[in-house]
Amino acid sequence: MNYIAAHRHILISLLFLLCTLGIWEWGSQPPEATKAMSEYELLMGGVDQEARVPPPSAIIERAFDELSDPFYDAGPNDKGIGIQLAYSLYRVLMGFFLAALIAIPIGFVIGMFPIMHKALNPYIQILKPISPLAWMPLALFIIKDSEASAIFVIFICSIWPMLINTAFGVADVRKDWINVARTHELSNLRTAFTVILPAAAPTILTGMRISIGIAWLVIVAAEMLVGGTGIGYYVWNEWNNLDLTSVIFSILMIGLVGMLLDLMLSSVSRWVQYKE
């Protein structure tokens, strides 16, 4: 009984899922022909002129199909979902880690020295609200490589949350802990690594989680523009093929991978969390 009580939310979740899928399935059935088709209708392939959203059953079937062989590669326009996702993940992680490499040290400097905060803040405030895709033409022109441009777009969109959170976390380290470092004659570098970094780590990780979330949002759009490979390109390509079943399937896969990315960072952030 207790077990059921503790897991009631799962039941509600499943019920909700079943209802949604049921309504969807029922709503996307083609209307039954009430009378015999005319010759014209037969020529046109049926009474139903309207294109329909594919029912969940078709999507599940497609998912099963795709996931049973996710890494097949049959030429530039026909690659498995696993390959496409791997391309996107590679770009996201590459851009994300490059951004972390730059944002965290700069964030440290801004957080530790109020003068740097004042000096750099105007630039951050101007650059931060720029949609990462707006950088795309400039990136393509300068870098002259669509692959690297996509990575640059990820880089530029993941840098801000990490930068701002790091600066905030570092500036907000309790004065007492800094005083502990000072009374123990720690050098600035050792203070940064043994006191400020662990103290600010939870805030920095929060910034990283926000960044990777945004990066995953942006990669889809960037790949639609850049083309070639990646899950964003896949979605757009299937749209051009008018294969809505694959579009819906890949939308779900984007959500799933995004969730996994967030789970990964949240488990890291649990590891650096401390209780005061």
Binding site: W177, N179, A199, V272, K275
Partner: peptide
Amino acid sequence: FQNYSLLPW
């Protein structure tokens, strides 16, 4: 210090 100032991590 009055508030102990231990490093909580």
